[in-house]
Design a protein around this nucleic acid. Structure first.
Lengths: 328, 328
DNA sequence: AACCGGACGGCAATCGATTGCCATTAATTG
DNA sequence: CAATTAATGGCAATCGATTGCCGTCCGGTT
């Protein structure tokens, strides 16, 4: 089942078999068809590693996520996987465990064994990222670095919508519940939050940073209550759901006493209790777009990129975790 | 940054470098250390593909899931990923889109590029599975095939617990909400359900099969109500959560009018409303164990396996979706 | 002194495909 | 009709590591 077996069987040279299979126009129709028939017959599958070794193309893309258990990434993985399969590429999934060091280490390790990488929620400093992008095709998700192509979900815009929503409901004291300090998205959201608040002559409170797990939600909920805010916008839904649970435990009525707005609209946001008002992000699409950009880039290496950054819109999905500000 | 560069730099043959790095005891201490130092210096990372080509070992394992969006698999992916990283192996994630054909096709495709595969929720017939297992190290999850090692989550036992639970609450008419017909686990659960019911002189109703998505939950809920059952045990939590939503829409009180028990205890099962009574499965552990078994098998190829099947216990986690049977 | 065996390291084949280059043949053209 | 060009397919090098085999050196035996 190697190219040589087929060559022997059809009485041509191995190189011809190779061509018949990968550059069909380079070989005569009848020869080609004979070869292809034989290949099909023998159930031939080219050896990925041999191909990679000689051609340099691996047909494999690595997707680095900071935490494989975070439902946010499920959509991303799904989208990426879909698009990659359509292109006949494989998906190497890598969990960086939220550590910049590990991320860097693993990146170096796979550098030579993939065609490119997608960095979802990279924790790497901008400089490192630039270096890596120079030696390996990279697409980042939710992370903007000069000269590195990226797909970013426009949650800052969404955060503004969220603030408008809350302000229109009479909220004046609104807090931002922060996520990981090394998260670019976190910084962007906080910035947007302050801007939006300022527009109404208000200033946003801020609590955190918190880890992005439901457990951190307990601490976050308590901190949120301490600010005296009547509404909180959280870094992501996981945190928000955790907060909701803690508030329920403490007997705090949501949205009666406090409103909570999440971010991402992950699996579960629509059926937690109360269902979460959140910024719906096109996560799966982000995964698909990231792959498309990467593959596109791979095909036109050397050419100047048409578009370096794709901004995906979000919208506020209002459910039952947000409501009118309580009367004082 | 190849083995040859290091060889040139240290003035030894490439073969010596290779040995110094992979079979340290085959080379003199001082030579070895000189080489290792140089390797570290140059930030050398062996080329995966070259290594795979000559040695046959790829240090890569494929994980095939039937649907990457199903939260059940998240835990599995996570567990597998963890264990693989610990062993320095890579994870190739493959989504078979619930199609036996595609699964088979993709398996053949990756056959030569991985050391082994983990089949989570395989849709393949037993015969095909046997054939594949003969030519490639395989570990299945939740699927029992002779001569193929596997880790199975003992949900049949859990189903019995669930039935006991429901019967003790006064339920007599209990229905099983079935999943995909090609799912081995589904068959096993249904069997367990009938056995458990029979023990009490009862017979279980059965509705389905349904696809495993929340949307199928709507249809399933209606079908479930039609049976007149006062309780339903579902193939999995995703379905159960979908059912819960539909029941809420229709104004049916859970557990007042009907009890619902899920299976797996996925993310979300604890915070849907009402929180779902379900069979808690050690999913992440299953992923870890599957990888361990596979790696272990790889190390002792040829030897007779110590244990072919690992059975992981489940337990019933009682939440608020199950309660006393309604009075008639 | 002759011999033996182990430690060490080099040589070269090998894994399976890709690809630049060249030879052959056929077709086109002035 | 000679000559240029295009189509086709083979040869052999190459990618980067691994590994079986062999030679050399050295210390220890008898």
């Amino acid at each position: 089942m190697t190219i040589n077996d087929i060559a022997a069987l059809t009485g041509v040279a191995a190189s011809t078999v190779s061509r018949a299979l990968s550059r069909p126009d380079r070989v005569n129709r009848v020869t080609r068809e004979r070869i292809q028939a034989a290949a099909r017959e023998l159930n031939y599958v080219p050896n990925t590693h041999a191909r990679a070794l000689s051609s340099g193309r691996t047909e494999t893309v690595a997707l680095l996520v900071s935490d494989a258990t975070n439902p946010f990434f499920f959509g991303l993985i799904r989208g990426a996987q879909q698009q990659l399969r359509a292109a006949g590429h494989a998906l190497l999934l890598i969990d960086t465990e939220d550590s910049a060091e590990l991320e860097n280490h693993l990146l170096h390790k796979v550098r030579r064994s993939v065609d490119g990488v997608i960095l979802a929620a990279s924790r790497l400093p901008e400089r490192t990222l630039s270096v890596i992008a120079a030696e390996l095709p990279v697409v980042t998700v939710n992370r903007n670095v000069p000269r590195v192509r990226s797909v970013v979900i426009d949650s800052p815009d969404g955060v503004m919508q969220a603030v408008e929503h809350l302000v229109s409901l009479g909220h004046r004291a609104i807090a931002y519940v922060a996520g990981p300090p090394s998260s670019w998205a976190d910084a962007a959201r906080w910035r947007a939050m302050r801007t939006a608040m300022a527009r109404h002559g208000l200033t946003a409170a801020r609590v955190g940073p918190f880890g992005v797990s439901r457990n951190s939600g307990s601490v976050a909920a308590d901190a949120l209550l301490n600010t005296g805010a009547t509404a909180g916008v959280t870094f992501n839904d996981l945190l928000a759901i955790g907060i909701l649970r803690r508030l329920a435990e403490r007997g705090v009525d949501v949205p009666g006493e406090i409103s909570v707005v999440g971010c991402d609209d992950i699996f579960g946001a629509d059926f937690c209790s109360p269902p979460l008002t959140t910024l719906t992000a096109p996560i799966e699409q982000a995964g698909r777009v990231a792959v498309s950009m990467l593959l596109d880039h791979l095909e036109h290496l050397g050419e100047t990129a048409s578009r370096q950054t794709v901004l995906l819109p979000t919208h506020l999905t209002i459910r039952q975790s947000s409501g009118p500000a309580p009367r004082r």
